[in-house]
Amino acid sequence: MELVIFALAALGAVAGGVGIIASRSPVRSALSLLLVLGCLAALSLLLAAQFIAALQIIIYAGAIVILFLFVVMLLHARSGETAPNRLGWLTPAGIVLGGLLLAGLLGTVWARDGGGVASVGAEFGTAEAVGQMLFTTFMLPFEAASVLLLVGIIAAVIIGRPEPASPTATGTPRRGVEARKR
């Protein structure tokens, strides 16, 4: 039973991953990302991480992917890959490098696998257990994370504001620099 679930979820995750990077339309990519996230949530459940699985669904699927879709809509779904690729060498290089990395990682997993799996109780990975740890041992990083979120909100507001319509705004001189360099 577990094996079947794993196989299905893993297959879904890989298919979603390929979908993200291979699809022409950003909307399809976003939906593929949603598929990956769902599958990973299922895998998390298999690994006794109920709380993480819930977070995965709520935050990633519920918030982040929606944000992606929102931006895609805002930008009229233009992928922008219209000009000819100026980094032609990157395709073979990326494939070779990615292959190397995959080989290294898989080799490591292959070589180092074999450790036993610890037996855990029923409360392992529940929201209560993770929360207990967050609010005791990781209290300070937790608070720091909240500050980070606040900073992120402020940054997004600042960046997202429409630019002031002054001639010294960043846009004009940038183009000037660019023109001169070319």
Partner: peptide, 18 residues
């Protein structure tokens, strides 16, 4: 495998969103 797929996306796609 998923990680390397992500890397491939970063290296091979030019759309900032993707």
């Amino acid at each position: 495998l998923l990680f390397v797929l992500g890397i491939a996306g970063v290296l091979l796609r030019r759309s900032a969103l993707i």
